[in-house]
Nucleic acid binder design. Structure first.
Length: 523
DNA sequence: AGTGCCGGGTG
DNA sequence: CACCCGGCACT
């Protein structure tokens, strides 16, 4: 399930000389057990890109049609062509269907967007996108030098010089990834700075590649839930959102408190857009710094956490690891709502996460035990600690009437795969799939959602919700075994004993006679 | 104290 | 399994 889930995530990547670069948020996957021909094509492949040229890949599968075809139509065509057996392809289509932006921040933003923003003026670029896209799905996309085209800028760190085969591949992946996904195309003005999404993708690639001990075979097995290759904080899954908006946020205003909460998923984008503002939050452990500008946060990270000289512009992009974009609901902030009362405690899938949770995330949201997902809570806690606070304060089960716990479909669907995820959207930055991250409770849009966190130590609960509670247990913490001590809530209905009394004990149901849960007067 | 029922023992 | 009961949690 897990692996499948991952495959269903938005993938972006490029196949370079036999190596598949599948870049997912949080993790970059390079999978290819086939013979690498990178040595042969590698240099040719990325050199142009690094020089600002454009790498044009030609898909073998579509090569018969030539390269001159309308890229746009080809894209669609290719997607449609996806064979049922091609998991990656299906994965992509799945993405399209799922439209789960939270899953793949940098990427997600790009694929779908890429289609929409294909630069008609530059067919070559479209070809790139197409190829990158295809590559991401495992389609062969041998690179060629045809149609060299100017590329938008490629975030190649100055100080990082490829020093080996792996590095080259990394670079190639980075370049291609950025090319295929860089929204910057839309915003040339921001060229001077490294596009965050791109740079992130690049880093992700790097992190994945560097963490790999094998030479050309970089594969991130879906089952591999190992610890992230770097101690970097999680990149928020929402980084993909409002990317464009982020560029607008140039006003250097005051820091915002951590009160902000993530809007991982935006079911009603139009509605919220007005009040949403992209902020940059430091993900460094125990640091809740939130700044309104990426440069600001980068500086913060660089100087405060990385110990770099604040005066220096030097940046290897390392900072990108330590902050993420977040959407801040300005309405909630301006309305004087306590920062503790997020209007919509939505959470997204499992964020990648490294730093320890700031708050206890009640054993609840673990959708699965795999590490990836297990991270989700931490992100959750980091991103929306206040939400958790609320969650814990409400004991729905104490209500006299059955209380329905507003659990989003995501949660309900947890069983279906991380996708469960937390959300549908789960994905996250880096996250990968975080899927998970189900993690998560997604309240119905509105003020404080009453989400009840089931704690292990919890004791009996009124009958009205007993079933719900039990279900929640199963849903929310399938892995969490009911600890001894969690007893079935005592039913409110009169039992045989009360109904018949001790004198008519023979009239009791057998269960009652045996001191078991009454079977006759069930709750 | 009364009640509900879990957990465990016995045959 | 059926049957029983110690004991806990809760009212």
């Amino acid at each position: 399930m897990d692996s499948k889930y991952i495959l269903e995530k938005p993938l972006v990547g490029t196949r370079l000389g036999g190596a598949d670069f599948i870049c997912r948020p949080g993790r970059s996957v390079l999978r290819d057990t086939r013979v690498h021909t990178t040595e042969k094509n590698g240099p040719v492949v990325y050199k142009p890109a690094m020089d600002g040229g454009c790498v044009v890949a030609k898909s073998e599968r579509i090569s018969h049609k030539g390269n001159g075809l309308s890229p746009g139509s080809r894209i669609l065509h290719d997607v449609e062509k996806s064979g049922p057996g091609d998991q990656r392809d299906t994965g992509y289509t799945g993405i399209l269907k799922r439209a789960s932006p939270t899953h793949c921040p940098g990427i997600n933003r790009q694929l779908p967007c890429g289609f929409m923003h294909l630069d008609i003026r530059n067919p070559g670029k479209q070809a790139e996108l197409v190829n990158s896209f295809r590559a991401a799905h495992g389609l062969n996309a041998p690179l060629t030098e045809k149609q060299p085209l100017p590329s938008t800028h490629i975030p190649v760190p100055r100080n990082r010089k490829p020093s080996g085969h792996a590095d080259k591949e990394v670079m190639a992946a980075t370049v291609l990834t950025s090319l295929s996904t860089s929204p910057l195309v839309l915003n040339p003005s921001s060229a001077p700075t490294v596009p965050e999404p791109a740079s992130r993708a690049w880093k992700e690639v790097l992190s994945a590649s560097y963490s790999s001990s094998t030479s050309g075979n970089w594969s991130w097995d879906a089952s591999d839930q190992s610890v992230p290759s770097t101690p970097s904080p999680p990149l928020s899954n929402d980084t993909n959102k409002n990317f464009l908006l982020s560029s607008q946020v140039d006003d250097v205003n005051e820091d915002v408190t951590e009160s902000t909460h993530f809007m991982f998923e935006d079911p009603i984008p139009r509605k919220r857009k007005n009040s949403m503002k992209v902020m940059f939050k430091c993900l460094w452990k125990n640091c809740e710094k939130v700044l309104s500008t990426s440069s600001g946060i980068q500086r913060h990270v660089r100087t405060v956490h990385l110990g770099r000289n604040s005066d220096s512009d030097y940046s290897d992009g390392e900072e990108d690891f330590y902050y993420s974009e977040i959407e801040v609901n300005m309405d909630s902030l301006t309305e004087g709502l306590s920062s503790l009362t997020p209007t919509s405690p939505t959470t997204a899938g499992p964020p990648p996460v490294f730093p320890p949770p700031l708050t206890e995330v009640a054993h609840s949201e673990h959708i699965s035990t795999n590490e990836l997902q297990s991270h989700a809570p931490s992100l959750l806690s980091q991103s929306a600690p206040s939400a958790l606070c609320h969650i814990r304060t409400d004991h729905a089960y104490q209500a006299t009437a059955p209380v329905s716990i507003p659990v989003g479909p995501e949660l309900a669907g947890l069983g279906s795969g991380n996708g469960t995820g937390p959300g549908t959207g789960t994905g996250n930055a880096i996250t990968v799939s975080w899927q998970s991250p189900p993690l998560i409770f997604k309240g119905a849009p509105g003020p404080v959602t009453h989400v009840r966190t089931v704690s292990i130590g919890e004791k009996r609960q009124p009958a009205a919700n007993s079933h719900n509670t039990v279900k929640n247990h199963a849903l929310i913490m399938p892995a969490a075994k009911p600890t001894p001590g969690t007893r079935k809530p005592r039913g409110e209905a009169k039992k045989c004993r009360k109904v018949y009394g001790m004198e008519k004990r023979d009239m009791w149901c057998t269960a009652c006679r045996w001191k078991k849960a009454c079977q006759r007067f069930t709750d």
